[in-house]
Design a protein around this nucleic acid. Structure first.
Lengths: 393, 393
DNA sequence: AAAAAGTTAGTTCGATAGATAAACAAACTT
DNA sequence: AAGTTTGTTTATCTATCGAACTAACTTTTT
């Protein structure tokens, strides 16, 4: 007897509303839920009892009385299942196992270098398998795996191009899904980071933000109306190849004057070579920061220039999106000390005044693995969504 | 007996669904609606009869039989009310009176020059009053007024700044609402144009598009997931002040190298002055096009340069949004003949290949007053939405 | 200290709205 | 006359709501 449509939909919406109230207001009573949601007390009771049966929530002891019977407090069962989130870097794989709330239970970092696709895939599986084996036992087990990758990812989870990994047309999603038999999500690293910051970082209270991932290249994750915007094919946020100098230097992309030629880690390192700050052949961001910290003026100037160039692109983004917040993340965020003042002052000087009144410019807190957490959160949410879609059997 | 929530909501959703099916599939029978919506035949019958009572739809004669009883065809009553849409230009006011479907019933164009705010407001009211008086009698009368303005408009409908009109902090919405006592919507002209193109122009079949309004300045209207994106405050799409030349010429906005300094009508005219194509003091786009048509090479080169510069910013937009379509509108669209080949080839050469596969670059059909139609459509839709929210009395 | 009164939490139950399925009537075609 | 399709009617079902009710407290009164 399949009731195709809307009668059940209401129930699912309400159940979902109740659950999200429990998640966001943590210890909360049935009475409070009824009041805040506008639902009838009886309705809340019946939905709550279903959620209890499904082990998505649990009752804790009685709470504080406010002059009458003491309420039974309800809590989200964050340990009902666990998610895995992977940040696939150019020379590292960082994986986290999180509960459904996004708390990290275990994490694992593996470094690698110059490996083939097969070797990298092996390493990915090693990390995933480790995390799975480290998961506490739970009613729903591993509910999904999310992977953030540095490259162009389409909506089907295929990595079309990841220049820094040397990958082309890799169906990573299918590959991993076949091994572990749980839903897998592959997202661009900047999108993952954006979502991670929105859920767990400084973007928590904002619904219109752009996360600028300034690493070897530059990418952006766009969050509008609280949701990630992927573009038509999933390629949005390729801001690194935005022209900021129409007569500028050539880029491998075929264009010239691309933003990331002036404001990325790569740009910093190349420039350091050119002005011959060091005669060594290999230079690293870490070393440059160390020398800046020691007061070497030439290096400081270099970092400040990167900051100014970063600001140019950010100004473009602000004018285009009118966001509430910009978060600068990835490796260059580590150089916040030298970059931030330049970014802030350049924006103050060169942005239309109306756009300036409300906007916040923040740097990622790098102790927070935003990308890995972001994709893990995607997986958790997908699980909850599909779980709530299900009918009672 | 106020049932605060969800039971009625289902009905409203379904009623809205039925109405939109009737609107989009024009002569359609109850049976077809039931099949296409998945709703039960009885449900459809009852919702349809309410819509009939509200005069939002009407029955026409019987349709073609497909082997049984002939269906009663239902049609949207586009004449149930009328909307007014105004395109507020720098030296003209163009107004349309449309039915609820967006068909133009009457239109009116008024030119003006160097007038004060009060004079302009007078003129706006003159146009509106004329259109109101020209409206056929209908059950709901004038359901709303929409105004597209060239400037920065916030979400409350205040025009914060319209440099080309010399306006600052004008509460146009309140002003007009007080006079005519119907809902008024004020939108940025590019947003209005974007919506007009999406509903009635070449964007009809796309859900991810950016409308580039290339006039005296450059603005953009952004449509994502089928909906207009306004930004946090409503100032999104100020792409004219996107930096495309970090070492470029100074802009009145305080920044340098802004896109509109290289690719707008203003840019074209200034450049024409500088290269001294004419010794006259006043030069117009129309005259330049005339001379290009007559084969004057210097003018043609100039137009082509504008095309190339236009493409630079468009490439930035494509990389940022990954849209499905770009529509170039406003005055420069008239120079399509010279601009389009340059835009297309520049994009082909300088955009990442993945972004190119699907994207369509179109020019506005200037016989379609996209801005005025866009804001009129906003008004119509708001009316229908609020009308469907209402309960039976 | 005990009893009574007042509050708040959560459950139960009858009423209700609106959707569905299925039967039915109407109006056709074959 | 038989079969089809359209649209209406009716019985049934589901999920919400309002209100009564029980439970478990706190506060006030005696």
């Amino acid at each position: 007897m399949h009731v195709t449509w809307n009668q059940q939909l209401v129930k699912k919406e309400n159940k979902s509303l109740v659950l999200s109230l429990i998640i966001s207001h943590s210890p909360i009573s049935r009475a409070d839920i009824a009041q805040q949601s506008g639902l009838n007390k009886g309705t809340v009771s019946s939905l709550v009892s279903e959620l209890l049966e499904e082990q998505l929530i649990y009752e804790s002891g009685p709470g504080e009385s406010s002059g009458g019977r003491r309420p039974v407090m309800l809590l989200f069962n964050q340990g009902a299942g666990y998610s895995i989130g992977l940040d696939l870097g150019v020379n590292y794989i960082f994986g986290v196992l999180t509960d459904l709330q996004g708390n990290i239970v275990v994490q694992k970092n593996e470094k690698y270098k110059n490996s083939s696709f097969e070797e990298t895939l092996q390493l990915i599986q090693k990390v995933i398998s480790f995390l799975i084996s480290a998961a506490p036992s739970s009613p729903y087990g591993i509910v999904g795996i999310g992977i953030g990758a540095p490259g162009i990812v389409n909506k089907e989870g295929d990595i079309l191009l990841a220049p820094n990994l040397g990958w082309k047309n890799i169906s990573l999603k299918t590959e991993i899904e076949n091994v572990y038999n749980v839903p897998v999500i592959v997202e661009n690293e900047a999108n993952a980071g954006a979502y991670g910051e929105k859920k767990f970082g400084s973007g928590k209270h904002f619904d219109h933000l752009v996360y600028v991932s300034a690493g070897i290249g530059i990418g952006a994750g766009i969050i509008m109306n609280g949701e990630l915007y992927n573009g038509f094919n999933g390629y949005s946020g390729e801001v690194g190849h935005m022209t900021i100098d129409r007569n500028g230097i050539k880029c491998i992309c075929g264009n010239k004057g691309c933003w990331e030629l002036y404001a990325s880690e790569q740009a910093l390192l190349s420039k350091a070579q050119i002005v011959n700050i060091n005669n060594k052949t290999e230079l690293s961001l870490g070393e440059l920061m160390e020398r800046a910290r020691n007061g070497e003026q030439a290096v400081i100037t270099l970092l400040e220039e990167i900051g100014q160039n970063l600001a140019i692109g950010i100004i473009n983004i602000i004018h285009t999106f009118n966001p509430q917040q910009i978060i600068i993340g990835n490796r260059l965020a580590a150089a916040k000390q030298w970059i931030e003042p330049q970014v802030q002052s350049t924006i103050n000087n060169f942005t239309l005044p109306f756009h300036q009144t409300d906007i916040k410019i923040n740097f990622s807190d790098l102790t927070l693995p935003a990308s890995a957490l972001g994709v893990a959160a995607f997986s958790s949410e997908n699980f909850l969504k599909s779980r709530l879609q299900m009918n009672k059997e």
